[in-house]
Write a protein that binds this DNA or RNA. Structure first.
Lengths: 255, 255
DNA sequence: GTCCCGCCCCCCCAATTCTGGGGGGCTGTC
DNA sequence: GACAGCCCCCCAGAATTGGGGGGGCGGGAC
């Protein structure tokens, strides 16, 4: 099989910084036949603006970056300056797909808006033309994507045909490594909830009041409140809302 | 490479019923060294109505099933009768992971509740002991999982070591084929939240009270309550807890 | 131009629910 | 016996729910 991919994935387990990951990922993708890449997080285009991105090579330390990018600087600057994140049709593609798809699929769609087409056209002008997007649907509704690009069309087709399964594997592993370096998960202490605490959180997350949860579990409202109080304290927050949210995000319950 | 997997994936494109998929999937997984499997949805994708559960072998027609299962009937019955879906620790694992993981990882965690451990123990009693879960985070915030099981531990370790990359590919493609067969009920209803409504939901999800959110957004507590009321109504629920949870699950906000 | 509509902001009120303490007791297991 | 898990009860103060009433602003339709 492909030793380079396996070596990279094994190396990821001990990766210490996102900058390192960015460099190794670039090396690996080049071995797979792709010239450049970008790895970024798409959801949500709603409230948040794109904050910082750190191109390959800049000093990174342990800081967590939103993007890993080795696309041409000029294109990245242009992209960010025009807020193309909201427009980019490859992102909307990633939103509705699970499998990797080449950009020619997107370009061939006839329901693109003028703005979306402009993004594609301008990307081509910057030399970002032949590529593919690997959607990464993460836990907690996150959506990230790994884009890979080749300078020439035939080179891309060959690399993509040979390597699309490798791409998925690489993208997933890179994503997990990236997430595990994020400060949120780093300091997480898993607490031990009891079954009743989980039950109460679960039904609360489903919109029930304490009294209703009591009816469902055939215990008194007071007891439900008791369990919720304990669970809230264990999880380390001060309100039921927060406890429920954290219980979901950290995987204690399924919404 | 593995011709059987490729053949299966190509066949999937033309698959006409979920019953067929269930049979072919069983054949394929057996070739990969796994004895049985289950494919189910922890959180059905938005907009897809997924109805009943039909084990492999029953007459299926074009009906859409919630589960594809070839685990022992006795265990499945027991599982469903006790509503283990809410408890099953492999699902909570899938909730926070992207990559496949063997169940021994779950069993080794020290934060399981008694109930969660009971599910694992009882599964073993029913002969469902050596297995792995392949999380499938789909678009639309859906979370599904493919579980594969072997009768013997060594057999599982060998098959998993050799085939975990195939499993991802198989799971993804099966999932896409399955979804494309499920009826698209009335399109999913995505509500349009305003910026302020999202802001208020976001800070509420982070555990702030209405008054605090008001301080953060420099608006009055009353206005925060106003936006939360509207958002709750739009999302179609009756409590703030539920609204926050649904906003997260459906990707309107990130926790 | 005007009008309407969505969005945002503020205020009021009664009823209900939650927070954060306290006090018990009953089963199991270690 | 200690301890964890579960169950029940009480209370005061705070927060939320679910209605209502405003006004202002900007953009698109007419």
């Amino acid at each position: 099989m492909n030793g380079a991919v396996e070596t990279y994935v094994e190396w990821l387990a001990g990766a210490a910084s996102t900058g390192e990951i960015a460099r190794r990922l670039q090396e690996l993708l080049q071995q797979l036949g792709f010239d450049r890449y970008s790895y970024s997080h798409a959801r949500p285009p709603l409230g948040k603006k794109i904050r910082s991105f750190v191109p390959l090579g800049s000093p990174s330390g342990n800081h967590v970056h939103e993007f890993l990018v080795t696309l041409p600087d000029a294109w990245v600057d242009h992209y960010l300056a025009h807020d193309y994140g909201d427009l980019d049709p490859t992102f909307s593609g990633a939103m509705t797909r699970v499998l990797p798809f080449p950009w020619r699929d997107v370009a061939g769609r006839n329901d693109l808006t003028n703005g979306q087409r402009r993004v594609l056209d301008e990307a081509r002008d910057f030399g970002v033309a032949h590529g593919a997007t690997v959607p990464i649907h993460g836990p907690d509704s996150g959506l990230s994507a790994l884009n890979v690009v080749c300078h020439s069309g035939p080179q891309f087709e060959e690399a993509f045909r040979r390597g699309y399964r490798d791409l998925i594997w690489v993208a997933m592993n890179t994503h997990e490594a990236f997430l595990s370096l994020s400060e949120d998960t780093a300091g997480r202490i898993r607490v031990r909830l009891t079954d009743r605490e989980r039950d109460c959180l679960l039904w609360t997350a489903r919109g029930k009041t304490a009294w209703e949860v009591g009816q469902i579990l055939t215990i008194s409202e007071e007891t439900v409140l008791f369990h919720l109080k304990n669970a809230t304290r264990k999880i380390g927050v001060f309100s039921k809302h927060h406890a429920v949210v954290k219980a979901i995000v950290q995987g204690y319950i399924l919404p």
